[in-house]
């Protein structure tokens, strides 16, 4: 966002701020992570790996059945993490991100707190940057919650044997944990891109539910379009196209092609929709 802030019109009255205070960001983080609804969303996400682990414990699936990584859980509990992340990635995770990012600006506008927030002597671009940082923090928190709860419950219920990578090579638990952490961080970055889209939608309306629903619909639509082979020309540009590229991190030797494409795509989405949100929000008349 620094590029955006550089372009922001500097008013003559605003004095240059030497030390960037984190007070505003801390209060925003408290707002996001202290809200009961957001905590409930995190709890639901944490429930997915628990559900998967218990279900597999009760009846072990045959090879090749169910979602990816499911049949490997009985060999090593760490696979609960991967299976859970794969399960929540299409819908649950985007929905959670849509709720938080869609609420970011529209929620304040709806409650009538936005205009009070704007009386605080900070630039609007800074306000937007702080809001988005909190959304990004939630994206990574949500992904890591799924991954960590999955690893914990998996190791509690299943042995920590050798982990089979997609290429058929086996690695130890330490190497596997490192790779799974990379996967979680990658998915978090992908969700941050969706968060930027949600942030922009949130600046368009005063109804948080509309912003949340639109963001969720955009995420699902992107996946539907990605599944249509006739549209293969536009696939690389779709928001969700690279989400599953974390599979490349589980190969031997590790391939970075897909994840790097994905990170590039996420960066582009964040830049474009961050700039759009700024253009909209900086020039908007806030009456509520």
């Amino acid at each position: 966002m620094s590029a955006v802030e550089a372009v922001a019109p500097v008013r003559a009255t605003s004095r240059p701020r030497r030390v960037v205070s984190t007070r505003f960001l801390r209060s925003e983080l408290r707002l996001v992570f202290g809200r009961l609804r957001n905590l409930a969303v995190l709890a639901v996400l944490a429930g997915v790996p628990i559900l998967i682990a218990v279900a597999v414990r009760l009846s072990s699936p045959d090879s090749g059945e169910g979602p990816a990584f499911l049949s490997s859980i009985t060999d090593n509990g760490l696979f609960v993490s991967l299976a859970a992340m794969t399960v929540v990635l299409p819908l649950f995770l985007p929905l959670a991100v849509a709720v938080v990012s869609g609420d970011a600006v529209a929620g304040e506008a709806n409650l009538g707190t936005l205009r009070y927030l704007l009386t605080v002597p900070v630039r609007r671009s800074r306000l937007l940057a702080v809001k988005y940082t909190a959304v990004v923090a939630f994206c990574f928190a949500a992904t890591l919650v799924v991954g960590l709860v999955g690893a914990a419950i998996g190791l509690a219920l299943f042995p920590a044997g050798p982990v089979t990578l997609l290429s058929g090579t086996t690695v130890g638990s330490a190497e596997a944990s490192w790779r799974i952490l990379l996967c979680a961080l990658y998915i978090g970055a992908c969700m941050a891109a969706l968060g930027a889209v949600g942030m922009f939608v949130s600046t368009l309306t005063e109804y948080p539910v509309a912003a949340m629903a639109s963001t969720a619909v955009l995420a699902v639509t992107s996946q539907v379009l990605d599944a249509l082979p006739q549209l293969s020309a536009i696939h690389p540009y779709l928001l969700s196209h690279w989400w599953l590229a974390y599979g490349d991190l589980l190969r031997d030797p590790m391939s970075s092609t897909g994840p790097l494409h994905g990170l590039g795509s996420a960066a582009a989405y964040i830049a474009v929709f961050g700039a759009l949100a700024w253009a909209r929000f900086a020039g908007r008349d806030v009456s509520s």
Partner: peptide, 20 residues
Amino acid sequence: TRLLRWGVPAGVLVVALAVP
């Protein structure tokens, strides 16, 4: 200024598409 402001995301989009 308003035109300039909306020019920023347009410019970012062009760059984002042009780089790859």
